[in-house]
Amino acid sequence: MIDLVDYFLTLIVTAMIVNLGLALYGIFFRPSMIKKIIALTILGDTANTFAIILGYRRWPSPKTPSRPPVLVNYTDATPDTLKEFVGRAVDPLPQALVLTAIVIGLAVTLFMVFLTLQIYRAYGTTDMRKIKKLKG
């Protein structure tokens, strides 16, 4: 009998790998630049999800779920609450890295949107195959 928790976590990872493959297909083999931008956003999100899964931890016991890396009752904190917090909280480092990655990804996507817009204004198409044949 397989462990269902193991199976579900593996399922999430496998689904993310398939999403990664689909997004790569979109980036490499779809002709439209807009479709490439959409695929690129999906690729970035999927890569971020891998980092989040890396920082997850399983529930310490069936009654106590793991918790976000935020200490809630900081005003009346004692060493015991801190110990309980360290025993249950998930890893904060991947979340901190993903946080900036998402905002920078948006800025880069905005840059690519402007690039596509200027290409369309200059050449009248967003099809990569036609843009490749253009000279000057």
Binding site: I52, Y56, I102
Partner: peptide
């Protein structure tokens, strides 16, 4: 992301995505 206990990421991901 919510189920994976990352409320910070949810807060930045929803406005962006």
């Amino acid at each position: 992301y919510y189920v994976l206990m990352a409320p910070d990421i949810v807060l930045v991901y929803i406005p962006v995505a």
